[in-house]
């Protein structure tokens, strides 16, 4: 089958149950919002292909169950992810506090160079807000992760969040490519898949340590 994209990025949405992971994904992939969403059981995914600086980037976005009980199942999907969205609900203090636990989860299960982003969702519900934007920003600074407040319902910042994450992954990937193969990077070899990137030759330094 001929590839219709230049890059394939695998992304993951994690966060407490009910923070709006599925709604965010639905807003991004279908540009719609549905009040009667059903709980996500286990894991599911959606696809959207976007255009980034003239390149077709296919985003394969995995949506996970938020309940602790499914943790062993969902963490198996961390490994192949190149970008992870950590979602909390600005009207739910606990979901914000748990972001730290989710970050620990990433550190234990995901690839070290995975791109991360924190999303404070439901920012349209100003009257019910429990977590201020400043606290979100502070947490993001603490972990040196990008942060944005979103509203899947009002379609606020969802698009830009995914574009930002995708752009960061793309930049990192191209930098790596250039580092490992400065000549090839400009030769028009653009058909890169996630797995190829993972199977990058071992670095000169690690070879050196074998000496």
């Amino acid at each position: 089958m001929a590839k219709t994209y230049d890059y394939l990025f695998k992304l993951l949405l994690i966060g407490d149950s009910g923070v709006g992971k599925t709604s965010i994904l639905f807003r991004f992939s279908e540009d719609a919002f549905n009040i009667s969403f059903i709980s996500t059981i286990g894991i599911d995914f959606k696809i959207r292909t976007i255009d980034l600086d003239g390149k077709k980037v296919k985003l394969q976005i995995w949506d996970t169950a938020g309940q602790e009980r499914f943790r062993t199942i969902t963490t198996a999907y961390y490994r192949g992810s190149m970008g992870i969205m950590l979602v909390y609900d600005v009207t739910n203090e606990k979901s914000f506090e748990n972001i730290k636990n989710w970050i620990r989860n990433i550190e234990e299960n995901a690839s070290a160079d995975v791109e991360k982003m924190i999303l404070g969702n439901k920012c349209d519900l100003e009257a019910k807000r429990q977590v201020s934007k400043e606290r979100g920003e502070q947490l993001a600074v603490e972990y040196q992760i990008k942060f944005i407040e979103t509203s899947a319902k009002d379609s606020l910042n969802v698009e830009s969040a995914f574009y930002t994450l995708a752009r960061d992954i793309k930049a990192k990937m191209e930098k790596k490519q250039e580092a490992s193969n400065p000549a090839g990077a400009r030769s028009g070899a653009h058909q890169i898949r996630a797995n190829e990137q993972q199977r990058k030759p071992t670095s000169w330094l690690s070879r050196c340590s074998l000496l």
């Binding site: 639905f26 992939s29 279908e30 719609a32 549905n34 009667s36 696809i47 292909t49 296919k58």
Partner: peptide, 20 residues
């Protein structure tokens, strides 16, 4: 009612995306 309508929309849109 609304949910059902939106559900079928999902199917169509997803199809038009070509992959899923």
């Amino acid at each position: 009612m609304e949910s059902n309508k939106t559900d079928s929309d999902i199917g169509d849109k997803c199809n038009s995306n070509g992959d899923c």
